[in-house]
């Protein structure tokens, strides 16, 4: 296995671990507002690493020009904060409960 393939493997493992971390945060954390942190960031970063892995694989190991994946990463990095923003807005509108240790609730009218 060449070092480029090792690089692909490393990026793929790192990416999937970050994706897993996002889901762990989703299951483990106490309330909606904290849960939101996992999927918006860890998962986005993980997917970025996976896109990088497949870019390295197709362009350098396989040797064919393939830049379509870049569009996936671009699209996700643009849309992830918008989705998070919409979700928090809806949650604040429905006045979802926060966990007891949250401070500054008066700032959000909860």
């Amino acid at each position: 296995m060449s070092w480029l393939e090792w690089l692909v493997a490393l990026l793929a493992v790192a990416g999937s671990l970050f994706v897993l971390l996002g889901s762990v945060a989703l299951v483990k954390l106490p309330d909606f507002y904290t849960r939101l942190h996992g999927p918006t960031k860890a998962t986005t970063l993980g997917l970025g690493a996976l896109v990088l892995a497949s870019m390295v694989y197709f362009n350098f190991v396989k040797g064919e020009l393939n830049v379509q994946q870049l569009l996936i990463a671009l699209f996700l990095f643009i849309t992830a904060p918008i989705t998070a923003h919409m979700l928090v807005k809806a949650a604040l509108h429905l006045k979802l409960k926060t966990s007891a240790q949250t401070s500054g609730k008066q700032n959000a009218d909860l």
């Binding site: 999937s16 999927p39 998962t43 892995a53 949650a91 979802l96």
Partner: peptide, 26 residues
């Protein structure tokens, strides 16, 4: 427990399935 929690989980599922597709492509 609320609708929005479920929505968030579904959204994450979308992104994770993209991750799976990329890996499967390699």
């Amino acid at each position: 427990p609320s609708v929005i929690d479920r929505l968030l989980a579904l959204d994450t599922m979308y992104i994770n399935s993209i991750a799976l597709l990329l890996l499967y492509g390699i």
